[in-house]
Each structure stands twice: as structure tokens, then as C-alpha cells.
Nucleic acid binder design. Structure first.
Lengths: 210, 210
DNA sequence: CTTTGTGAACTTCTTCACAGCT
DNA sequence: AGCTGTGAAGAAGTTCACAAAG
């Protein structure tokens, strides 16, 4: 069993998230155990990969039987830090921001929006879906008061640099970046970039070259 | 120089997309050439990586000077298949679907929505932002008539399996999947999964383990 | 002097294959 | 017999380091 969780390779962590989704799915079918082979085939991995990934965190399986679904769900939720609710703030209440705020997935999972930041003066001081809208200039103060852990960036290209600087100064632990500007982790802020166009372009690359 | 574009590793293709964005950015600053080192540092890669990636597709640089920005932009656009417009269809006109349809990035890039499919009978036959809304039952017929190349899936969990089956039967070349159900490429359809929660969960994993 | 392009070295990730438990 | 956990082997991806070119 591998140590040093903080240095765990990203591919393994990403697959853990996939396993969790699959386990919840299988559980909803009323099943109680599952083999590494099934977990693998449902997701296009190899069974050895599934076993090796899980073995990084402990020995959860039973030889001859496979993995107890409830147990494994709880273990993975623990590993991924999903046994508590995470406090998010949306920065940028455009169409995408609104879609994310109203997305059911956040609430049914372990994520809760506790604040919205928006530049447009007419929105500041109001609420959207019951969440208070603040001026981005107060990010530092509000982040501390509201104990914001992750900011979700859905602002236009032009505003990204300035806003990211404020996020770093505020010392917010993490950012999920939906803008088309790629950000690098800096200071104490861990960044994850989500780029639709990059995804589309990998598709057009492979479509073009077959 | 490496051959077999269709077998090019995904990480390289993804970085190409990043280089393109960076080049457009640098170009907008009025510059005409750039070194592999700068391209690397702006994105958190190594300069050797940049050079090796680009060398898979040809020799575009000038020793001592670096890369001509305009030339490299055109080369990468060519490699990624972005010299023409791609015909997209949205399946599922919920909040996320609407946000994507109105997202400026699609039109300013090489992507165009030519159809919308929606289950809700009250919407079928109408238009949204000038794009015709169709019944999903007609996917096969409309896909052919409209020459749809990529479908963007923004439907609820429950509908994914059924809709994906129709996409495969229609032989649509690619799907960008925003649903929480992971899909595997099948038939002639290439799938790219986009999962916000997976991204959030990688953040919570690292936040939890430091 | 600067910077590319690229084999060789290295590191990381994945699969193989099998001992060992149920 | 069925399936896990894992060391060893193999594949893939990254960096090193330097000859060659402007």
C-alpha cells in the first residue's frame, strides 16, 4: 500500500471519482458486491488497474468475492474528502454561472454555494436563488467571513487576471476555472482548469485525422 | 518527426490546444515570434516538452529565434482541424444547454450549433436563439439532413443511455458529454466526457490530504 | 549567444501473471 | 473455482543534454 496521499498521481484520483460514480450506480441496482473486472469494464479500464488504484489506499477487497459496495463507497468518499460539505463561491453570474448554481448535482453531492461575486453594480446586494451577491472588491473579507474553500470562475477572459490576483491574495484554497484563460496554481491556491474548447478540439483533431 | 496522426497521444493533442490559445494571446500583444521556453513557462510545461510536441508534426521553429507566431498558429489550426467550421447539435435544452448555446466562444471559434433536440413537447418545433428545436426521435433523420458532426449532451442522467443509443444508431461521429454518466466510445462515435464533479473531487482530494 | 530538434536517459503509468486467500 | 493484491515487466510520457543552425 502506497503512502503520501498528497503526492498521489492525478490519474488515480480521477479514476477514484469514476469508481465512486459506478459504485453508486451499481448500488442503486440493489447489488452488494462487485469485482474489479466489472468496475473496469464499465469504464474502459483494466481490472488490474482498478485493483492497483484501490491498493494505494488500503486493502478493501475480499479474495474470491470482490469488493463490498457500501464499504468501498465509504472508503472512496473518505479518500476524496467527500464526507463533509465544501463551501463554494461563484465568481461571475453569467449564463454559465447561473447554470452551475441551479445544477442539481452540486447540492446532491458535497458542494454548497455560499456566495456569489459579480461586477455588475445592479446585481450587488441582491440575491440569486437565495444566495447573496457581493462586490468582487470585498472578496478577501467575505471569503474569510463565509469560510469559502473553492471559487468557481465563470467570468469573461478580460477579467480573469485581475480576479485571480484577488483570489490568491485572499488565500482561497482552490479554484475551478471555467474561463478560457489557463491558470496555474500559485500561492496557496490550487487550480483546476476546465476547458470545453480543449475538449472539442481533441474531438476535431481525431475526427480530422481518420 | 512522428507519423500516424490518428494515434497521437491525447496529452500532446491537449497541449496543442493550449499552445494555440497562448499563441493567440501573444499575437494580440503585437509580437511576431516566441520561444519554446516562453510557451512552456506560460503554461507550466518544460521547454523540451513544447519542442518535442511540435516536432511530432513538423519542424516549425528557427534556431536562435524561436517560432513565428502566425505560422505556428496556422499549423496548429491545421493539425487540430480548425480551419473549417464544425456542425454541432445540442441535445437537452436545460440551463447548461442554454448557457452553451449562448456562449460566445463557440461562434468565435470553429463551432456552430445547427440543431437542438429536446424531449419537452412544448418546445419541439420552436426555436431557441434562432436554432430549430427537434424531437429526439428524429435524430437519425435530422442528423443526416443537417450533417451533424458533434452532439453536445446536456440531458439528465436518466435519459443518457437511451439518447446515446440513438446517437450511435445515427452514426454521429462524435459526442461531447456533459452528463454525469460516463460514456465509452462505441460504434463510429467518439466520446469525450466532461465532468465538473470529477474536477471538483480532484480538488477536494488534494485539499483534504495536505 | 540564442534557441531548435532529437536521441538517450529517466520517470511515471499500465499491464502481466501468479501466489495466496476465501 | 473465483478474485484480490502485488512484484516484475513493459509501455508511455517527460526531461536531459548537446550538436547544429541562425
Amino acid at each position: 500500500m502506497r503512502e503520501k496521499l498528497g503526492k498521489m498521481p492525478l490519474p488515480i484520483v480521477e479514476r477514484l471519482s469514476v469508481y465512486l460514480l459506478t459504485l453508486l450506480d451499481i448500488k442503486s441496482e440493489g447489488r452488494v458486491s462487485v469485482s474489479s473486472l466489472e468496475l473496469a469494464e464499465r469504464n474502459g479500464f483494466s481490472s488490474a488497474q482498478v485493483r492497483k488504484d484501490l491498493s494505494c489506499f488500503g486493502t478493501f477487497g475480499k479474495k474470491g468475492t470482490g469488493y463490498d459496495i457500501d464499504l468501498l463507497i465509504e472508503k472512496i468518499r473518505g479518500i476524496l474528502g467527500l464526507k463533509r460539505t465544501w463551501r463554494l463561491a461563484l465568481i461571475g453570474l453569467g449564463n454559465l454561472g447561473k447554470a452551475l448554481i441551479t445544477h442539481k448535482g452540486f447540492t446532491t453531492r458535497a458542494f454548497e454555494f455560499v456566495a456569489i461575486f459579480e461586477k455588475k453594480p445592479s446585481l450587488v446586494g441582491k440575491q440569486y436563488k437565495g444566495i447573496q451577491i457581493y462586490n468582487i472588491e470585498n472578496l478577501d473579507k467575505i471569503a474569510k467571513a463565509k469560510r469559502i474553500e473553492i471559487v468557481v470562475l465563470t467570468i469573461p477572459k478580460e477579467e480573469v487576471a485581475g480576479v485571480y490576483e484577488k483570489v490568491i491574495v485572499a488565500g482561497i484554497p482552490a479554484a475551478l476555472n471555467f474561463t478560457p484563460v489557463r491558470l496555474l496554481s500559485k500561492g496557496n491556491t490550487l487550480v483546476k482548469n476546465v476547458n470545453f474548447f480543449q475538449n472539442l478540439e481533441t474531438l476535431t483533431f481525431y475526427l480530422s485525422n481518420f
